[in-house]
């Protein structure tokens, strides 16, 4: 008996509104993140992740307001990420009712932010989001690749990207994962840029490698199109939690259906 695997819906929010289309019956305002979060809470979600993609100070203020309104009716953990670059942003989100704050670009540019946040707020509220992409191994980049993978005669490594996956860094994702653990991160939110949006399943190789490299919890993200993808990422890659967006948002599967499927396959989940 141990901790249950978590099923986490992710809501992309821009200027205080849900970005991806949603069509659930019974929602007064399908574009309101707080209302959608409450819907998922009632369905049995284990956590809610809000990702603010506004990338503006106004957007972040609206996001804080969303968190405050969500905390009115949602009694499960909430994580907020997107555009977090200062300790003050952590403070705002936490005092509004978030339990964890995730940093991505700012952690790469200023790793001390991670350790400072862990010191001030505790590791359990510091999540580092890592966006990684498969990079063919070349003579130009092989000095950056700490962990090389092979598929037939193809060699590649996982490179960290920032700024919403647009900008490559010189970091190897697995090395970076170990580094953020050292800095005091309490959790890693690992997104495969290659898998994201494909609905063909999580990047099991990436997830497995990171899960083996660190001893903090890892949330797998990117590529979920079917409940069996969650089963795979739990069983084959040992992820602690699986994040998904579109399969829930478009009503293809309810949280309950996903959890019932996982439980029927022997995965320990929290009953809805």
């Amino acid at each position: 008996m141990t901790v249950a695997r978590r099923v986490i819906p992710c809501l992309d929010v821009k200027d205080g509104r849900v970005v991806k289309g949603v069509k659930f019956r019974g929602l007064r305002d399908a574009g309101d993140p707080a209302e959608l979060a409450e819907h998922y809470y009632r369905e049995g979600a284990d956590e809610i992740v809000f990702l603010d993609i506004s990338a503006s100070p106004e957007g972040r203020k609206l996001m804080v307001d969303v968190v405050r309104r969500t905390a009115e009716s949602v009694f499960i953990p909430m994580t907020v990420g997107g555009g977090i670059s200062k300790l003050e942003h952590f403070r705002e989100a936490l005092s509004a009712g978030a339990d964890k704050v995730s940093v991505n670009t700012a952690a790469v540019e200023n790793p001390e932010l991670v350790s400072e946040a862990a010191d001030v707020f505790g590791s359990q509220c510091v999540v580092v989001a890592i966006d990684a992409k498969r990079e063919p191994l070349t003579p130009e980049n092989e000095h950056l690749a700490d962990y090389v993978f092979r598929d037939g005669d193809r060699e590649y490594w996982f490179r960290v990207y920032v700024r919403g996956g647009r900008e490559p860094t010189d970091l190897d994702a697995i090395t970076w994962a170990k580094k953020v653990e050292e800095l005091g991160a309490g959790e890693i939110l690992l997104t495969s840029i290659d898998a994201d949006g494909t609905k063909e399943g999580y990047d099991l190789e990436l997830t497995r490698a990171v899960c083996r490299a660190v001893s903090i919890p890892v949330i797998a993200s990117g590529g979920c199109g079917h409940p069996r993808h969650m089963l795979e990422v739990f069983e084959e890659a040992d992820a602690d939690a699986a994040l998904a967006a579109s399969i829930f948002h478009y009503g293809e599967y309810s949280i309950r259906e996903v959890k019932e499927f996982l439980a029927s396959r022997g995965v320990r989940v929290r009953p809805c």
Binding site: V3, R6, E187
Partner: peptide
């Protein structure tokens, strides 16, 4: 030998 923090739902 266990992941720390202990994060998530447990019995």
């Amino acid at each position: 030998g266990v992941k720390r923090p202990h994060m998530g739902w447990n019995e």
